[in-house]
Design a protein around this nucleic acid. Structure first.
Lengths: 248, 248
DNA sequence: TGCAGGGTTTGATCTGCATCAAGGCTCTTG
DNA sequence: CAAGAGCCTTGATGCAGATCAAACCCTGCA
């Protein structure tokens, strides 16, 4: 429905590794040219910090490849992940000068950045961009609220199952078509990062994964490679309504 | 900075009880006329449900007076509040046909509603509205992420103190000027609603409030009327950075 | 005046997860 | 090949907050 979105825009150029070039028929040539001018790419390697909370941030960006996290840290070191950024997700806030969260690359990461000032100007003149950004932000807000239910009310086992289901679903959406014999994916997070995501300790994460393994809900090959023989079986462990997602 | 925002628009009419009429100099007369045509008011009394999760929802709205909550419920009855709507807050999602959460009036409530279809059309033609909505949604997302830190990592005492601080701050912002002798406000939520907000049980909420009272951090008159003699003292209990809020 | 019901407090006990601690696996580096 | 560093697992123990239960307070109403 959005005929000119940020991903499409950030993918106009030939060096962008994901998806096809998507030129929208209704986009004005000079809009694109303007975007091209304020756009640049940055790469980070796994573990590197993109920006620290409180730092000056004069760009907004969208993830091209890799995975990044947003985390908040309390003075005494307690950490909570508050965002998981996958390819096409947006970082940064027009109208704010400093970063509100630590942004970290958990895998090798490429981001497509736009300098903030010109980007904001473009938002004024190009309503599609603001509309698309609104849509993405509303999606993120929904995800955050789902996450709040998880943090506030789910048990450790339900939390782990939910996280696995989220990753499995996303992975299934990307891949052409998983084998019929079950869903297979690699965990993009360490046990500690999972713990920060779920509001648990890494020991509890480890124990609950072992428990799911013991109960035959999942199988592990190595520490990271997960096989889910029966996705419905996994979903039963999440505590969520079975009736899947609301379709818009 | 937004010269034409949703509240301003919803307050053009004389029957709107909050704030002054705010006519934006840059707003086109016919924009306003269009908004007037698709606008209507609805009232609910305390405790009433505005809409159930999954129900058809053919309007978007903003709170005029009173307080509403968004909650999610699991099949077995566990509940988590995921949004607290104060005057001027926005409900509903353009581009979604059904409600994703239960919306409940916790006090008597007046909402200014816009039928969804024409509202969406107006978003297309009036960029200011989409931009303002984006701003509001980003604010909500920030609040949700703060809330996630609370749910995932704070102790019961810190949760209670944080909630009191949030309410106190909001209240202070509304009132002309609190007395110098400390901040005073009424809790707009029952113990159970606070528990749903904080991911606790109502017993724990009650106990922690008693503890804060015992320690002299707060004083209670009746069950709902709170006196905070020293706001900094309360803030110390929240676990948050002392350096207050980032100013844009 | 009594009593019924919703909201709240407080006590006793239980339990899920945190904490503390040790050891295993795998990869890197000298 | 040894030594070290990350990351992960597993065990033992402790405690914050859940659960179960009882009683209190206030308001409305018969």
């Amino acid at each position: 429905m959005a005929h000119h979105d940020l991903q499409a825009v950030s993918q106009q150029c030939g060096d962008c590794p994901i998806r096809h070039r998507a030129v929208c028929s209704r986009c004005e040539a000079d809009e694109l040219a303007r975007l091209e001018q304020i756009k640049y790419y940055r790469s980070y390697e796994a573990g590197q910090t993109v920006i620290w909370s409180g730092d000056r941030m004069d760009f907004v960006a969208s993830v091209v490849t890799g995975i990044a996290t947003l985390t908040q840290t309390m003075e005494d070191g307690r950490r909570q992940m508050v965002g998981l950024l996958l390819p096409s997700d947006f970082v940064g806030r027009p109208g704010r000068a400093t970063a509100a969260y630590d942004v970290t690359a958990t895998t090798d990461l490429v981001m497509c950045c736009f300098r903030k000032k010109p980007f904001e100007e473009m938002m004024q003149t190009t309503p599609h961009v603001a509309q698309r950004l609104l849509e993405m932000t509303l999606d993120e807000l929904d995800a955050a609220r789902e996450w709040m239910l998880l943090l506030g009310r789910k048990t450790a086992r339900e939390k782990i199952a939910s996280l696995l289901a989220i990753i499995a679903r996303r992975d299934a959406a990307l891949k052409p078509k998983s084998a019929k014999g079950g869903i297979v994916f690699d965990l993009p997070l360490t046990r500690e990062e999972m713990a920060d995501y779920l509001g648990l300790t890494l020991e509890t994460v480890s124990r609950q994964i072992s428990a799911l393994k013991r109960d035959g809900v999942i199988t592990l090959e190595g520490k990271r490679h997960v096989i889910v023989p029966d996705f419905d079986r996994l979903m039963e462990q999440t505590g969520d309504d079975s009736d899947g997602g609301y379709l818009n």
